[in-house]
Design a protein around this nucleic acid. Sequence first.
DNA 1: ATGGCTTCGGTGCGAAGA
Length: 258
Amino acid sequence: MKIATFNINGVKARAEVLGRWLDESAPDVAVLQEIKSVDENFPREIIESRGYHLETHGQKGFNGVAVLSKQPLHDVVRGLPGDESDEQARWIEATIGDGGLRICGLYLPNGNPAPGPKYDYKLAWMERMEARVRDLMTSEVPLVFAGDYNVIPQPEDAARPEAWRDDALFRPETRAAFRRLKSLGLYDALRLRHPEHEIYSFWDYQAGAWPRNDGIRIDHLMLTAQAADRLTDAWVETAPRAWDRPSDHTPVWIDLDL
DNA sequence: ATGGCTTCGGTGCGAAGA
């Protein structure tokens, strides 16, 4: 089962890219971030015309997540539990097909500028995610937590780590919170398969970041042991970053023996 | 570089992103 996460930076602006990507790369399951669309205006036909089931959790203007799957989606949860007052659309869960896998698609807050209220929100969100992961891990079903984490886990996950030293994506508190998530028993799929350096998933639109390969790795698929046991491959698909009108992120993939 | 692009909403150009 091939599973991808893709921050598409606007589902309507990315209609052509999204259709081409589904045709060429054909994920079994994918989670999308930054759809920047309310659910009523989501261009569902791009996805459903290609035979996918689709669940969305959007809001006006920014944020927004979605999950698509060739198998039916069940028991959908929209929004990260733990704060009824949080109106930002950054979390969606669904069980795939007959229940052999549960996937969580997430768009973790950016947090800049740091320090400040946006950074406080990021750290609080990560604490809430920790609680949700704990909850879900009481089940024996393999779990995949996939999305744009807005976390550079280690210096080797950035082409120029010194440029990110004080940034909300790389500050010590951010990386410590990410380590706490891992210490619950989650495995970074890409690093399980590719411990080597220089693998990125985001390149800024500005200053020639893509042609200079001035990237960062912030899109992650985190697996429970039950899912990691099934992991056969993990990779970043860089080609879509070079297409016309690309997202500034590119898809990250795993293949599970499910 | 004190964001050099790009999205959205809305139809100006500011907010947000990373």
